[in-house]
Simulated assay, not measured.
Amino acid sequence: MKNESIQQSKRISKDQIKQVADKVVQHLAQQRQLRENQIPKVSLQPEHIENCELLLNRHQLLGKMKKNSIVAEIGVDEGKFSQLIHKKVKPQKFHLIDMWGSDRFHDGKFEAVKDYFAEEIKEETVRIHKIMSTKAAHEFKEEYFDWIYIDTDHSYETTRDELQLFAPKVKPGGIMAGHDYRLGNWVSMYRYGVIEAVHEFCVNYNWELVYLTVEPTESQSFAIRKIQEE
């Protein structure tokens, strides 16, 4: 009799666990669909891709960027890509923009970036802006940058705002590029919105894709440029 009670208790526990698990799965599916519905889907037209070139990786992308230029990297983290930009492009003026200060993007990374670029900071060829990306845009005059590279939270809303705010800060013929041109991070189940924000911006403001990278093991990058009126 005692054994039967124990078996029944185990069955009840398993049934309860399954019910809870089913509810969690259903809730997550609803949240994903809600998020999906919040991200607009705007279709590109032929003029937005006719000059687009595929590149193997973002190392090649840097090879296409103007040397001795005025550059911003928006979203620096620990500065590994910043170092690559500095070595390959040799910017005349290099602005590094990031909030830092969170658990993942902590001040230890901020200090590491400062230490690496200590000499350039002293020479005023590198400047660090510890500020939110959308606020940082107001610190620069119009038509200031030759090109920028965006790598922040990858959400539709943030990317949309960054593109709109930094576009006037880029010189005519200049480039706005960025990372994580993909649907999301499937390990963390985080839905990106970079693709949708870029496409919407190109259609609404008459810009075109000029470069896309095709890394199989890393998030892809994009580069866009204002379509020149004839």
Rank of each mutant, 00 (worst) to 15 (best):
H106R: 08
L163F: 04
E4C: 09
E73K: 02
E36K: 13
G63K: 11
V113E: 01
E200W: 06
K23E: 07
S5T: 13
K87H: 13
I49V: 15
K18D: 08
T125P: 06
L34C: 11
Y181M: 07
H129P: 04
S221T: 12
S155D: 09
I131E: 06
Y181T: 06
T125L: 09
F166L: 00
D180S: 06
S82V: 06
S221I: 06
T134E: 11
Q45R: 13
E218I: 11
D153V: 04
K87W: 10
M99H: 09
T125N: 09
Q45H: 10
I150T: 00
P216N: 15
E124V: 09
H154C: 02
F145H: 00
T152D: 05
T217A: 14
V170C: 01
W207L: 04
D15R: 15
K109S: 10
W207P: 02
R191N: 10
S133W: 00
L61K: 01
G178N: 00
H106M: 07
M1R: 15
N37L: 15
R35G: 11
K18H: 07
V113D: 02
I227V: 07
E200N: 12
K14S: 13
V89H: 02
M176Y: 03
Q164G: 07
E111P: 02
K109E: 12
F81A: 01
F140R: 00
I195M: 12
I121F: 06
K109A: 12
I128Q: 09
R182I: 10
H154D: 04
M1F: 12
V170D: 00
V187L: 15
E200K: 13
C202G: 07
E157F: 12
I17Y: 15
E200G: 08
E196N: 14
F94R: 01
K135R: 15
F166H: 01
S188P: 07
E196S: 11
S188I: 10
Q7N: 14
Q220L: 10
G101M: 05
Y192E: 03
Q60S: 10
K66P: 11
V198N: 01
V170M: 00
E143Q: 10
L84Y: 10
I74S: 00
M65N: 10
V126N: 00
D180V: 04
K226T: 07
D115C: 13
E78Y: 11
A118H: 15
F94V: 01
C202F: 14
V126I: 12
I39G: 05
H27K: 10
D22Y: 10
G79N: 06
N37T: 13
Y190P: 07
K122A: 15
K169S: 00
I49M: 12
N3I: 15
F105K: 04
H106P: 07
I97M: 04
A197I: 04
K135E: 12
G174C: 04
D107S: 13
S188V: 13
E230C: 13
N3P: 11
M176F: 04
M132A: 13
L212F: 06
G184H: 03
E162N: 03
L165Y: 00
L34V: 14
K122R: 15
S82Y: 03
Q38C: 10
Y156K: 03
E200D: 10
M189S: 14
L55N: 02
Q92V: 05
E208A: 09
F222G: 01
D151E: 07
Q228V: 08
I17M: 14
I49Q: 08
K141S: 07
E162S: 01
Y192I: 01
D153L: 04
